[in-house]
Design a protein around this nucleic acid. Structure first.
Lengths: 211, 211
DNA sequence: ATATGGTTTAACTAATTGGCCAAATATAAA
DNA sequence: TTTATATTTGGCCAATTAGTTAAACCATAT
């Protein structure tokens, strides 16, 4: 039954995604995945030959999904400030729905740098980069953001969004000990992060002008 | 020979630190650790009964070391802005010397939340918190930073420093594809991050005033 | 010298785990 | 119904790996 085939393969993939996200490649057990999918362990090898292949498919899907979340920012026809607000709203909401994703990706990226270089190699980052530059030329100039500062700015934006989830357990522990609620903190962060970054780059002007 | 004992135990501990940082608890192999220490695998069990015990000692040392790096910020008799500059200079330099530390800690934290809660429970965060608040009461007021914004600010500062290392392989890949040098980027980040945060909190005033 | 203590090693064990295979079962086609 | 094909299963194997044990080693004190 073709209907059921897809069902099984999908069930396996979803179970694998869950287990890999929780335990990482090294910590994950094929038996766990089979159990969670409610099928026999041999079926895993029937659909996905090896643990490596299964993991690769899961990772590429997740990593691709994550990178794709950055895309609208490059495309949208918005001012720089609007884009920043838009990004944080969308991206933090995305990570909110996938709380283990950040930590998983960061770990697996580090475990296998080759895969990342491969992935990056397939993307035309140069185009995205120059697009952003061209699109916001005036605004960047107005804020005195030099070409060489763009990497700093980009990673700062990513950091503001990703870190609270990557360090989730630690941040949550500390916040709760201080009487704050993590979910509330995250909800507020969507706006806070945007204003934080906008404030920072507005300020850049002052700094550069003084120099 | 007592001298040699310490030597061996230390050698094991250092080798274990290296391997665990590279592979994580699940990916690390006792044999690898023994090889890197240049000794027999049984010796590992002689000095540290089990893999878990060995890992725990390594983790507690690293995690403690990492948290300790935040301490001078709380103690130093500096203005808020000076503290921010001081922190980024010190902390980024620290991570520069231990490039795998961030990713390792973030992964292991997530793998075993209980350990973190335990660790946090042992620290009097409340005191540090109120100290900071009291110490910089005027400056925080001047920048219109409310009590409830402190978690946002703190995590933002941590994020700016930690993220480039946690996502090291990814950031490095992208930067190098764009013709930038990662080490150079990190070196510049020590100042950039400080000015970025200072700019952001200076701006907070404007935001709050408008509202 | 030799007895004593801790240290180091080689060989081994038990358990886990990824992967394989052959039989069984279901599905669709003739 | 019969045949062919795809799916699912249980049982198995070989490799890996954390941990054990008993013997060898070595420094020091008597």
């Amino acid at each position: 039954m073709v209907e059921n085939d897809k069902q099984t393969e999908k069930k396996i993939f979803e179970a694998a995604t869950e287990v890999f996200m929780e335990k990482g490649m090294d910590g994950a057990r094929m038996q766990d995945i089979a159990n969670r999918a409610g099928i026999n362990k041999s079926l895993l090898h029937y659909y996905y030959r090896t643990k490596d292949r299964l993991f690769n498919e899961v990772f590429e899907m997740i990593f691709g999904h994550m990178l794709k979340k950055f895309a609208p920012v490059f495309d949208a026809d918005l001012t720089l400030e609007e884009k920043i607000r838009f990004f944080f709203r969308e991206h933090i909401t995305f990570l909110q729905k996938n709380p283990r994703l950040a930590s998983f990706v960061l770990h697996e990226i580090n475990r296998n740098p080759e895969r990342v270089r491969n992935f990056i190699g397939r993307i035309d980052i140069g185009r995205l980069w120059t697009d952003i530059e061209a699109q916001h030329k005036d605004e960047l100039k107005k804020s005195n953001i030099r070409r060489e500062d763009i990497p700093q700015l980009m990673t700062s934006i990513a950091a503001m969004s990703v870190f609270p989830f990557a360090a989730r357990v630690l941040v949550k522990s500390i916040l709760e000990k201080m009487g704050y609620d993590f979910d509330d903190y995250i909800e507020k962060r969507k706006e806070y992060a945007a204003e934080f970054v906008i404030g920072a780059i507005r300020k850049e002007k002052g700094i550069r002008e003084k120099a």
